[in-house]
Nucleic acid binder design. Sequence first.
DNA 1: TCAGTACCGTACCGTACGTTACGGCTGCGG
DNA 2: CCGCAGCCGTAACGTACGGTACGGTACTGA
Lengths: 238, 238
Amino acid sequence: MDLAATISEGTNGVSDAGDDPTPRQKAVLDAALALIVDPKAALTMSSLARAASCSKESLYKWFGDRDGLLTATVQWQAAKVRGMPVRREELGRDRLEASLERFAADWLTVLSGETSVALNRLAIGDAAGGGGRNLGRIVLQNGPVAMGRRLTPLLELGREAGLLAFDDAGEAFRDFFGLVVRDVQIRLLLGDRIDLSPSDIRVGAARATRQFLVLYGAGQRPDGPQSANPDFASIGKE
Amino acid sequence: MDLAATISEGTNGVSDAGDDPTPRQKAVLDAALALIVDPKAALTMSSLARAASCSKESLYKWFGDRDGLLTATVQWQAAKVRGMPVRREELGRDRLEASLERFAADWLTVLSGETSVALNRLAIGDAAGGGGRNLGRIVLQNGPVAMGRRLTPLLELGREAGLLAFDDAGEAFRDFFGLVVRDVQIRLLLGDRIDLSPSDIRVGAARATRQFLVLYGAGQRPDGPQSANPDFASIGKE
DNA sequence: TCAGTACCGTACCGTACGTTACGGCTGCGG
DNA sequence: CCGCAGCCGTAACGTACGGTACGGTACTGA
């Protein structure tokens, strides 16, 4: 009940990881992820204990209760996804385009992965009970918000270099998000079968990047009638 | 068990509505919707029987089992949303823009409604169990697919009128979808509190429409270096 | 050797929920 | 009036699952 107390709630209730899980616990969390991803399996305390070859008593000792286990599992997966920092080389227009494209491709790859789909489903189902777990917030922080945190600096750099034109980097990011993701995520979540081959991802990322540069590019067509004026109220407060 | 048999499966397993529900059954389905929407309530057969003042025996007679009830509820809500056909007046550029804007605003309004959020959560949670209910397909058909079916004719008209330029109407629609929805839906599903006032919706719809016309508009800037060339592999097959 | 710790495996308990069954009420055709 | 169909309310049953308790085992340190 000690680790659970630090995991399930903290000062802000979102990003505190408490103690790092021990290797044994990491193995258990991986087993939990496998159960969540498996469509024909259900994550129950008993099934996890059986799959991970541990006792339910240990599960409760380590994670407190089922909620703590889910929270730790989501955070464990989130910790594994982190990385791929955008390195700020001196960027020209080609370099910026390549960075955006790579970013979009990486994001589509993660997004369409069965792990991401399964965890988003879990968090959404959890958010349904209005009581208020924090799974939704955790996934949100490691999903769109993390994407924004990593992309915004690149956009700012592009603006400083005179390659992009926008007032609100957050709005620009959200447009990029929409152009990249479109209806892919909601369709995946609803169970639509999408193959999404690597070449599809590459092509889609290139299209989204090209369209984004048409909307926000400043290096060319500086007198376009409506090239970049995203001045409207922000939605949500993240 | 009769209505359930016709509802839960048919020739294609998606859009068959079987017999129309009687007024009494409609009232029950409305009560079911209310329970699904209510964050602090859960839709159980007992709670629905209590809320709708009917017996559980009647529920099972009318809908077969819990799955049939959920299916009928989703279809009932879908039947209520249909409407607002796009009337094809002779459209100039302003008329096209206004239609797109209205379409985007309507869609954002429906999307951000608590009923839509709750039903999408329900269908997503249902799609998690890979076994395969059809709730996901039903919501999909009445969500993005229905939006595409209603918007595509308008886009085709715009192209015939020389106002839009695209090769694949489906791709153009998906880009419009992304520009309109962006990250709003996934954030709502994950429980993020978004107020989204009517003015926010209006402004957002206007922005998305403007951006879409920048990407796909053909009436002006006919020599833009990259104005409209969405020629890439289609993702998914709807 | 022995106490303590950590853990596994399993049996157990309470509850929630899907599903079925039964008794009682109302309206309607004969 | 009788039989019956439809429906309500409620009790009852079976199961699944979260959570707890208990016995058994391996390791550690005194």
